[in-house]
């Protein structure tokens, strides 16, 4: 389903580049990721999403660009005429493998989309090479910048920590957080502009945080759910889904998704109703519809409950 943008942009020049020996033509302004996808090269991404500004931090999409000292992130590097790109060279495979190992050895990736484990096996990633996972640092949120956490001689440091349950709407389980910045962007200037969360701390202790780590109810959060909508790892989750998962009743295979229009104000936001057993269990919005770009407000996200409250 597409929104239509009628104001016509100026026609864009076509650029020619070579990817894995194949000639590819893309419109000026395209990224290498778009070029790869255009010719069907499956490129892993974690921090990239169509409706957000690329932050190019996960580095799982890196490709080799002739003439460049280092690998370059496909998600944000703009295509140029004459570029020669390898998306599957030994250097690329080695870096993607290590990046996936770095993540999997430090973060709980068990709720990620299935592609992530497919990439892990494609690149032969084995996170156990770094040793067994260490219990996390319970004081992560209060770590001073530059403060050194004692280093383990036996295992691999992780970001393991208990989920944050400070309200009845969201669950924040940062043991699953890969720090892709998507939630910060969706809460911030890419969509909601509420800025309830930001990255705090630095290095391995960098984390998504409210000011002074106050609970969400004391923060600026307005519960639009746009952070949850973009989270790729299940670190952010609606409490309702969290509870169903805990009760073992969350069953995506039994869920249908129907697109309709929000019953509240007159903006006309597209809602995707995820229905399980004739009950709405989650609401999302299509990323490619130009009214919402995938983002909703608190009413669109949670206001459905009245239809299920009738006797």
């Amino acid at each position: 389903m597409n929104g239509h943008r009628v104001a016509l942009a100026a026609p864009r020049r076509l650029l020619t580049l070579t990817i894995d020996g194949r000639e590819v033509k893309v419109p000026e302004g395209s990224t290498l990721l778009q070029a790869c996808r255009q010719v069907g090269i499956d490129t892993p991404t974690l921090c990239y999403l169509e409706n957000l500004t690329p932050v190019n931090v996960c580095r799982v999409c890196v490709v080799e660009l002739e003439g460049s000292r280092t690998l370059v992130p496909a998600c944000s590097r703009k295509a140029e005429n004459g570029m020669v790109v390898s998306s599957d060279s030994e250097r690329v495979r080695a870096s993607r493998k290590l990046v996936l190992e770095f993540l999997a050895s430090s973060v709980d990736l068990s709720l990620c989309a299935p592609e992530v484990s497919a990439w892990m096996s494609r690149y032969g990633a084995d996170p156990a090479r770094f040793g067994s996972p260490e219990p996390g640092n319970v004081d992560r949120d209060r770590t001073r910048p530059g403060e050194h956490s004692p280093v383990s001689q036996d295992g691999a440091a992780t970001v393991a920590q208990p989920p944050k349950l400070d309200n009845d709407t969201y669950v924040r389980d940062y043991s699953r957080c890969i720090l892709c910045y998507k939630c910060v962007e969706a809460c911030g200037s890419d969509a909601q502009n509420t800025f309830a969360i930001a990255v705090a701390g630095r290095g391995f202790e960098a984390r998504i945080s409210t000011e002074f780590d106050v609970g969400l109810p004391d923060s600026a959060c307005v519960y639009c759910g746009n952070c949850i909508g973009v989270c790729p790892t299940g670190a952010l989750m609606f409490k309702s889904e969290f509870e169903m998962r805990q009760a073992g009743t969350w069953a995506p295979e039994r869920q249908s998704v129907t697109t309709t229009i929000c019953p509240y104000c007159g903006v006309g936001c597209n809602l995707e109703l995820h229905v399980q057993d004739n009950s709405i269990v989650k609401v999302t919005s299509p990323l490619d519809h130009d009214v919402t770009l995938g983002h909703l407000c608190v009413k669109g996200r949670f206001g459905y409950r009245f239809v299920q409250s009738r006797e």
């Binding site: 996960c58 799982v60 870096s95 770095f102 280093v151």
Partner: peptide, 30 residues
């Protein structure tokens, strides 16, 4: 330790790689 402490934490290779490097040296020295 210096690189681990001074990494900004933004990109995965540096944020986790500096930790893994430090751990590995600790294992070797022990």
């Amino acid at each position: 330790r210096f690189f681990r402490d001074e990494s900004c934490g933004q990109c995965v290779p540096c944020r986790v790689g500096t930790v893994r490097q430090e751990e590995l040296l600790a294992r070797l020295s022990a």
